[in-house]
Design a protein around this nucleic acid. Sequence first.
DNA 1: TGACTTCTGGCACACTGTGACAGAAAGGTG
DNA 2: CACCTTTCTGTCACAGTGTGCCAGAAGTCA
Lengths: 209, 209
Amino acid sequence: MSAVGLRERKKEKTRLALLDAALDLFLEQGYESTTIEQIAGVVEVSPRTFFRYFTSKDHLVLWFHDHGEELLLEEFAARPADEPPFTSLMHGLRAMVDDMQGSTPEDTERFLKLRQLFDKYPHLVGQSVARGAMTETRLAEAVAARRGVAPEDDQLTYLIVAFAMSTMRIGFECPRRETTMPEIVSRISEAIALAEASLRPGWDTRPAA
Amino acid sequence: MSAVGLRERKKEKTRLALLDAALDLFLEQGYESTTIEQIAGVVEVSPRTFFRYFTSKDHLVLWFHDHGEELLLEEFAARPADEPPFTSLMHGLRAMVDDMQGSTPEDTERFLKLRQLFDKYPHLVGQSVARGAMTETRLAEAVAARRGVAPEDDQLTYLIVAFAMSTMRIGFECPRRETTMPEIVSRISEAIALAEASLRPGWDTRPAA
DNA sequence: TGACTTCTGGCACACTGTGACAGAAAGGTG
DNA sequence: CACCTTTCTGTCACAGTGTGCCAGAAGTCA
């Protein structure tokens, strides 16, 4: 008997198999033209079971998002409370970058395939951004707590979070033609530097109106 | 025979009837629990016809978005070419606000109902943000043209557009408890002022790297 | 081994969204 | 008015997504 049970290992294996099968099929024959039945077929699992691993077809493509969101929230919480919030969020982004650099070759490959998909189907970028809006809400709560205000009373809280998420998106999405991990990582660093240079010092520590 | 034919007037009437029926049903019995069949039933139209007016259920909720996007693009194009791009985009936002103030009571009511819906179903905010991502792409092309660069080569172009869209979202969404048009309008102005005060002068006119 | 929990497959089902075609309605012409 | 053309509408059929339900298989633990 191992540290994690056979059941859990099997589940994780199935989850990744479904994800990989889906990514390959999407790139081969298109996102819309690929059905759940096909994906499940490759992994030799019933379509019904697919929905027990991923809540929807779109959810497949947002797989990396869940992970990144947790990382960002954790890193923000771990930063000193007197640090300007935008600075903390940029540290969160750097933590995501570090995590990507330390990931397995399999995960890297999945990430690069996802980028290809986003490039090919702009509709999926929309899905990703929509998911980002949920993350913004959670981040806004954390930032508001640090600023000592109720999030819905303070536009600056939302502006800080929105600008940070914008920076993240620019880093990941622009430009999309980069195809290797080091290139992408350096683009994200560039975006962070660009954002920091564009904002007025102390803008994110002003008291609520 | 009038300026616009009977056919077109009828179409517009049906479109608005479907929209109004949908908004009321969504608020009454929930977004998910409302079916296309019900919406079409209220207007006494076949479900098949519904899809000839709106491409999907979500499209109903993005109705105002299409209008706002055109307005923003037009206003940007109309601004002097030597004006800093972010300034032009903020003028675009003000044009949207002016348009809202000049709209009919019916349109105002629709807009306020939509806000209630967004407040109740965060999922719809995601849809709206996703649509905003498409707008960003179009705006980025316009901004890049003015900056004299290819959009995919210039992160700053995307950052300008993303920050502008963030400002718009903050203005519209935060805080959501406001219930009258003048209150909302003043919130958007507030968001614009906040964004402008947060950014370093000249940040959006730096040459591409 | 046996009891317990969790996962899986199969079935039925409601709903969204699309293609195809026939008929109704509007617009234009003599 | 009759006629033809164009556009809109309803009906039917269908593929695909996503969910509730239940019986049985498989992993877990004593």
